[in-house]
Design a protein around this nucleic acid. Sequence first.
DNA 1: TTGTATGCGTTATCAC
DNA 2: GTGATAACGCATACAA
Lengths: 342, 342
Amino acid sequence: MSSKKTTIHDIAEKLNITASTVSRALNNNPRISDTTKKAVLNMAQDLNYQPNNIAAALRKGKSQLIGVIVPTINRSFFSSVIRGVEEVANQLNYRVVVSQSNEDSDNEIATLNALVNARVDGVLVSIGKNTKDFDHYKNLIRRGVPLVLFDRTTNEISTSQVIIDDFLGGYMATEHLIKQGYKKIAHFTNYNKINIYKERYRGYIEALKDYNIPFYNKLICESNMQLEDGRMCTEQLLRSGQKFDAIFSTSDYAAMGAMQVLKENSIKIPEEVGLVGFSNEPFTSFTDPPLTTLSQFPIEMGHAAAELFFEILNSKKDKLIPQKTVLQPKLIVRASSIKQRK
Amino acid sequence: MSSKKTTIHDIAEKLNITASTVSRALNNNPRISDTTKKAVLNMAQDLNYQPNNIAAALRKGKSQLIGVIVPTINRSFFSSVIRGVEEVANQLNYRVVVSQSNEDSDNEIATLNALVNARVDGVLVSIGKNTKDFDHYKNLIRRGVPLVLFDRTTNEISTSQVIIDDFLGGYMATEHLIKQGYKKIAHFTNYNKINIYKERYRGYIEALKDYNIPFYNKLICESNMQLEDGRMCTEQLLRSGQKFDAIFSTSDYAAMGAMQVLKENSIKIPEEVGLVGFSNEPFTSFTDPPLTTLSQFPIEMGHAAAELFFEILNSKKDKLIPQKTVLQPKLIVRASSIKQRK
DNA sequence: TTGTATGCGTTATCAC
DNA sequence: GTGATAACGCATACAA
């Protein structure tokens, strides 16, 4: 019933040695004899010793903990990135701690502070859509806390980041639709002009230009890119009378909304309207028809982010130039964009 | 450029007071004068002071951190539970730290130890499917660490838990199918006989009995309940020649697999075969036809789990009887199980 | 209302 | 190969 936690001192006392020896034995210090090590390990087991990592962290000034902040945990993309980070971190005996900002800027700051105050050894962040002010991140860097940005990044912060080539993604999606014979391609994008959406938009424009397809402003719909927004954009398109024969949505969820509205209006996909999403959320393979989309290789992104992080951690912090890892997206072609040949 | 972190001592020195006063001022101790408090707060700001929660945790013996372990973060159900936990915890100035076991028993133990060693004030766990040995959890309780189980629980551990009434869920799903006129209802369940699946199965059996529907063993398929397993079970059913006109799958993913195979075989849903899943994963409303399923109210489950946790935390630990919160599931009726009247 | 002294559990430094 | 001691940054019992 002794709810008292056993410490290295308890072990030391039982063994008639000192706490320092116990500490060293537990850390497998080469200067400790095998006999003592064994004795310590056994006694630790007997007393059900659990190391107090908090004390160690205080003393060492590092916690072996790395914090990850994502807008939401509830997206396959983000949870897969986290998985990737974990894989690298665990290998190096680091634990990963996750918090979600819920796309709320204040919450993002609070969460960041909480992690920093919990003395994580560094932070990996995907910035929320609504965050416009990056002072806390700049501040972090000034204080020497390793920071890596992934996916939702900004150039306003001078630190390492990993992104996918969103421009290329936008280009590939649009080019694919063009090659399938679609000519009037609508584009759903986010009204928050964060990098990833700007780049995808650029890719869309560039592809149109390269294939001499005219650009119509009325084919662009800006929204928050949730399912409901995709519905709204599609309904708006239909009402507007503006002809379109394809939609490239920069989010799978908005694409799903588009699919629903199209089906409700008995518009055939892909025969009458081709559809392409973005992110390869698992449900995209379940829809009818299955949705063409782009994979962002989230696991690999997690790997890359973790690697950049450890690079910072292990460098002389004074003179490290920020790295940028750019991953290639991949087009996953499914039925929603394969025009039937007549 | 001073990467040196400022401490309460630095603040104290600048202000010609002692560290204890600073500590009290920062903690808004009523015995400190407003003037000093203001001065301290200002100076803290000026020096960009960030409290070292690790030191505080070591001193206080508590970290204001609560750990959550889930089999996987990549399920809407689990991430929503986490959201619920956060809502309650943040209100009380606790932060939530999440780790995934990836359904791996060893990983679950490692993760648990990591959290405990990081001195979280307690742990909320949904046990992995493959975990058969609960010693580490019993151990935890013996050491006085608050533990709450949710959803994937076991009666072998004497601690508070929150579950949904899985028996009722199983009953409701089956009864719904029966009332729609389906008579030969197949059931997909997990081969790991953890509580939730046993209970849903019981509900299925009970409903059959109440409505005098004969039970056929060949209509039961045990698997790991992923999409692929649902496909396999359905293919097996079709090959077996055993007639069936409905499937109640204890997982949305397996139900999705069933839907795919049925469609591939040109079997009409819901006309020829009715389909019901379990969990109300978001994609279930995207499928064609949309999938009838059961909501487990994950956010509410998170709330309940957090509340049970704080109950333990705030009690005299010696004499607290474990509580059990049971939530009611709700049937979400969609097209996949609404038989067309002829 | 504030100061003094002490300890949380560990590890690093120095000594032997 | 092991021991003694101090320190990480904070909070609290006790004193004033």
